[in-house]
Design a protein around this nucleic acid. Structure first.
Lengths: 145, 145
DNA sequence: GTAAATACCGATTGACTATCGGTTTTTAGT
DNA sequence: ACTAAAAACCGATAGTCAATCGGTATTTAC
């Protein structure tokens, strides 16, 4: 007789689930198209990859349940839109996948820099410095307000 | 009669697969412990999470086949070790999960900065600037060599 | 040469995406 | 109010993958 309990858990991050290929495509679609219903999404993907309207509908529903799409019912159809802007999503994604491997004191971004710096060119370094300056300015003006 | 072919593919990135909870734990273990065999890994995890030696063995094998662990046979047991250092792994991970969502011209790191900057404190900004300077220095000395 | 340690094989379970047929619900128009 | 169309909803199936572990084949040490 087992006197213990085995608990299985998958994913502890922001999303706690993985994204399939179609889900990724649909997300990208909604970063280009503010609002669309299932029919429109289906029309958009029918040519490039096929698939039935039902497949699109259940994918939209899955993304909605994951909190990645928002929806409102308008007459008899749901209108979907991205729940997060692309960059915010990417940020959460990075946090999600890295948090298991980064230590508390070590910022994810700093880890990312160390990890990716080998691929950086001068232009990107300049851009990054510019962003840091810009961000510093924002902090300071907030503090003095 | 179907005259078309449906191709399913999951993941196109560096790893082209996902990591389970145990796999993550084992990876982290090998970033702290340079070399270990299945028995040692099992001994380490037995207390905290249980599981049989076989489970550890197949997990090690899976990580090996994914290229995340290296192994050499020593007498009758494989000795495993991390194939990638932690930060390199994190870098590839970030690239992997973001590449579907970032545009070619936009560096992943720059995207990461924009995404994560809301969480940055002054210390981390300083650290980042320091890293940029350091990295610039490295580039320059390589160029003049 | 045998016993112990380890690798190897294969099966099962559970989670998740993709897919789509069929049924129910909702709404618009008459 | 009735009906037809549209859409949502339900449920089934297949494929991928991690986790798990029993059983068998190898390998090595003595």
């Amino acid at each position: 007789m087992k006197d213990y309990l085995i608990v299985f858990s998958r994913g502890a991050g922001v999303f706690s689930m993985n994204l399939g290929e179609l889900e990724k495509l649909v997300l990208k679609y909604f970063w280009q198209t503010p609002v669309a219903d299932a029919k429109q999404v289906h029309a958009h993907f029918e040519r490039s990859r096929g698939g039935s309207l039902n497949t699109i509908q259940s994918t939209l529903d899955r993304l909605y349940k994951k909190g990645l799409l928002a929806r409102t019912k308008e007459s008899h159809a749901y209108k979907y839109q991205a729940a997060k802007q692309r960059k915010a999503f990417i940020g959460e994604l990075i946090q999600d996948v890295t948090q298991d491997f980064t230590h508390g004191s070590e910022g994810n971004l700093v880890a990312a820099f160390v990890s990716l710096s080998a691929d950086l060119n001068e232009t990107q370094l300049n851009e990054l410095e510019r962003l840091i300056l810009e961000y510093r300015g924002k902090i300071n003006s907030e503090e003095s307000a």
